[in-house]
Simulated assay, not measured.
Amino acid sequence: MKITGFRSLTTVHDWGRRTGDVNGVQSTDATVVPVLIIETDEGIEGVGLGAHPDVARVFAAVEGEDPRSVVALYDRMLAWVFKTGHSGAVFGTIGAIDMALWDIKAKAMGEPLWRALGGRERFVPGYASGLEYSLPDDELATLYGRFAERGFRGGKLKGGIDLDRDLPRLEIMRTALSRNSRHPAIMLDANESWNHAQAARYVCAVEQRLDLTWVEEPLRRWDAAGMAMLRGKVRAAIASGENLTGLEQYGPLLDANALDIVQVGTVWGITHFLRVATLAHSHDLPVSTVAYNGNPIAHAASAVPNFLTHEVQDLAFPVGLDIDQEFDDGGIVLGDRPGIGIVVDEERLASASAVPAAAASGPHVRPERAGLRMVAEPDVIEEPATAGGRRTP
């Protein structure tokens, strides 16, 4: 079997709500979902999800190769971009190709990827995470109520700017999830918006009212010393790692004992996740996946001994993607379809509504005052940015 080509496609995910965090909110209810199809000479095609802007350059590293040599091809892709480096968008491109190659390998075996990787259970425990920063309180309660109907016993709230706003919202989420547990897991995600003093003050204030399971990305992703010090000041576990692009970036954090929970971004691919999970396991730490459309890394999570929980951001899937999984009993139930279980309806993708270009501010852009706020500042979350103005960070 040989890799012969690729197709780069796009669809959308309609969330039915604005999504975002303290760094900003998306300008529409829908977001773009890039889809990569890797072709072979035997007709088996692999599906990878996530942005892949450098695919034309990186594809040369795998063209003509046997896709079943996926781990070796992953390292070949890293070597291919050696001089310019493999961080950022390049790493995302490698991740999308890697995901598609694992899909091909499992399809060639006639097995779902979770079984091909040695998983024993099709059930992957999860937690609810609605990216709900822009929602008013009543809609927040409705959203986490829907997650509770699927059995979820843990949830994560986006916050970190206004304690008076966050505390009641954390309690709303806890109340919604309490139907499934007397003590639901409650997490707070600051998305790197604090400095060290802000993080310590904020989390300690929250912990006077609530028992946080973890606080996520309290400081910049590389701040090993800061997160290590924060661990000694708060009760909540420290979780971070979703934006690290490469195994080597975890070393300083683990050496400094900065993390309680090692997180991995889904968009960086399956091989990366498996390697980070092994590295975390060598430090006796749990690993947790940060979600992306279709939850493809859930297959790999089922085969990892130190896997903790998988973020679930929505109970629906992008337009034109038929995904063989369900949400029940507070997690993801993987199906038996060979590969990662995604069937792409390319005609529906072609007719999917276009999504406007990303706004000048949003969760993808770090605000000017992030890490510099002394007190809560005005926070406009209802109106998207316009071409002639800017939103208050």
Rank of each mutant, 00 (worst) to 15 (best):
K158E: 06
H86R: 14
W102N: 10
P112H: 06
G88I: 11
D138W: 03
V124S: 06
K105A: 13
L135M: 13
A141Y: 04
A128P: 06
A141L: 11
A128M: 08
D137Y: 00
A106S: 11
F147R: 09
I97N: 07
I94K: 09
G151F: 00
F123S: 08
G145D: 05
H86P: 05
I94V: 07
G88E: 10
A148F: 08
I97P: 04
M99E: 12
A79T: 15
V81K: 12
D138M: 06
F152I: 04
L113H: 05
L117H: 06
V124D: 03
S129D: 13
L157D: 02
Y133S: 08
A89Y: 04
R150D: 12
G85V: 09
K158Q: 12
G92T: 01
F147G: 00
E139Y: 10
E139M: 12
G126S: 10
G95F: 01
F123W: 12
I97F: 03
R153W: 01
H86I: 04
L135W: 05
E132I: 02
D138K: 11
A100F: 00
G110Q: 07
F152A: 09
M99W: 01
Y127G: 01
A100M: 02
G154K: 11
A108I: 02
D138A: 13
W102V: 01
A100P: 02
M109Q: 14
G126Q: 08
L140M: 10
T142L: 13
G145V: 04
L157Y: 03
G155E: 05
F91D: 10
E149S: 11
W80V: 05
G95C: 03
L157Q: 01
D137T: 11
T93V: 06
V90M: 15
A108G: 05
L157G: 00
A108H: 05
R146N: 14
R146Y: 05
G155K: 07
L131C: 13
L140V: 11
E149D: 14
A100I: 00
G154L: 04
Y133A: 14
D103P: 03
I104T: 06
V124I: 12
A79M: 14
G110N: 07
R146P: 00
E121R: 13
V124W: 03
P125Q: 10
S87A: 14
R153Y: 04
P125K: 09
L140N: 04
A128N: 10
G151P: 00
R153D: 12
I104M: 07
A141D: 14
G126R: 07
A89G: 06
Y144L: 05
R122S: 15
A148G: 12
L117S: 07
